[in-house]
Nucleic acid binder design. Structure first.
Lengths: 235, 235
DNA sequence: GCGATGCTTCGATGCCGCTCGAAACGTCAG
DNA sequence: CTGACGTTTCGAGCGGCATCGAAGCATCGC
């Protein structure tokens, strides 16, 4: 994809401190002449001219000629948008420790890890599946589904043979950040979360990675796999 | 002040093509081991290790250690957001044309941008909502929902007054990196995608950001908003 | 015309950082 | 313990780019 080459070349334009000073001076939308931008960036006119030409070619600036002055301005709102998006990314500094909020513990209890279930519930669910030998450890960082497991998954409406495995297999363990244990990932994990949400057992919280278990879901977890609230809820 | 230095240092991390290849390989949210990223970027393991360390320090990547493997992933959605914002900026010059693969055009047609709809369909949907004045432009980079809009959303089972706005509002435009136009983001955008998936109109492709419209969904788009396949499908 | 001003181009210099070979470190299998 | 493997660290080579001096263009005032 030539898109990646394009992104990095654009980023390299912003990467130079002198050019960034020029862009900063123009962030408010004004159009400034080359000489003033050179002064703002603390460089000579020749150097600034080189930078301005590159920014122009890169599509970051627009040019407006007036007499012997040449006024430069940002090419559009998308440029300032990109700069602001970059400003959000901060180097990893000192680790800040904060008391876990209610939201944080909800995330720790049950959350999405991309498209599969993670957190204490994800780990508890995976352990229950392993204890019942519905899934077993397999080589190359994978889980295999046993015959009993296929039957059990079918019982909740999940057709295992119909799932096509990716390059990394049908199911695999995924390390859980908070629990330092594994939960079920891979296509099977994705479908399992989907199915449980479809039954109304679990509910994804909009705009968050948190997952809630409904009363119906709590009952199902207990009857199907013997998982009680105490096994994973910790507020 | 130090903000500008921070932006340019972040940009310099993205500026290197090898590092950009690494970031591209991680854009879908997966976590990949260092060796695989080295192979993806076409560099040796030593060089990749250096790059990964810098990206980690720069706050672009997160690390997950599993045995002798070290899995790297994007530090968060803000990183992919910044990359997409950069991708919007195009050099003013010869337009290069590439042969799109089937997967690429699927992504271009319809995909998730985090939790809301993007791509040609996302833009077409947003434009239709604006044309019908269900949503209107509002100050501070936002969309406002009109009374007619609230009624329409309720008609598809989406209770707008029940959605709580975040700090950035209820709905806002998000720049689409392939279409260079805006699509609907914010809590309303998230709920809208959710609702349309719930009706079986759209279907998220597992393990990908691609979104498919079902036949039922195509009919609904036509009857509800007058959007035909030709408006957004382009293979 | 003539000089002054604003800006760009050319050429040379110096430095940053990307790159890979070699080697050390940590983990896993036997 | 030993060998294999994945990853990181160290060191040296080297290409690319920012920088500035000097010169070349264009415009303005007189």
């Amino acid at each position: 994809m030539s898109q990646t080459a394009n992104v990095s070349s654009t980023a390299s334009l912003i990467a130079d401190p002198a050019r960034m000073s020029i862009l900063t001076a123009l962030l408010d939308g004004r159009a400034l002449p080359a000489g003033e931008l050179a002064y703002a960036a603390g460089i000579t006119a020749q150097t600034a001219s080189s930078h301005l030409g590159k920014l122009l070619d890169g599509g970051l600036l627009a040019l407006e000629t007036a007499g012997r002055h040449r006024y430069y301005r940002l090419a559009g709102g998308h440029v300032s948008h990109a700069i602001e998006a970059l400003a959000v990314i901060q180097p990893t500094g000192p680790v800040r420790r904060k008391a876990p909020t209610a939201q944080a513990s909800a995330l720790r209890n049950a959350r999405c890890c991309y498209d599969h279930l993670a957190g204490r519930l994800g780990v508890a669910l995976t352990n229950a599946l392993r204890e019942r030998r519905y899934i077993i450890d397999a080589p190359e960082q994978r889980f295999a589904v046993t015959a009993a497991g296929t039957t059990w998954f079918a019982g909740i409406g999940l057709d295992v043979p119909a799932i096509k495995a990716t390059r990394r297999g049908l199911a695999r363990p995924c390390l859980d950040w908070t629990e330092r244990s594994h939960h079920l990932a891979g296509p099977l994990g994705v479908r399992l979360l989907c199915t449980m949400c479809g039954h109304g057992w679990l509910r994804r919280v909009p705009g968050s990675r948190a997952v809630q278990a409904t009363p119906k879901g709590q009952a199902a977890l207990k009857s199907q796999l013997g998982i009680t609230d105490a096994d994973w809820r910790c507020d």
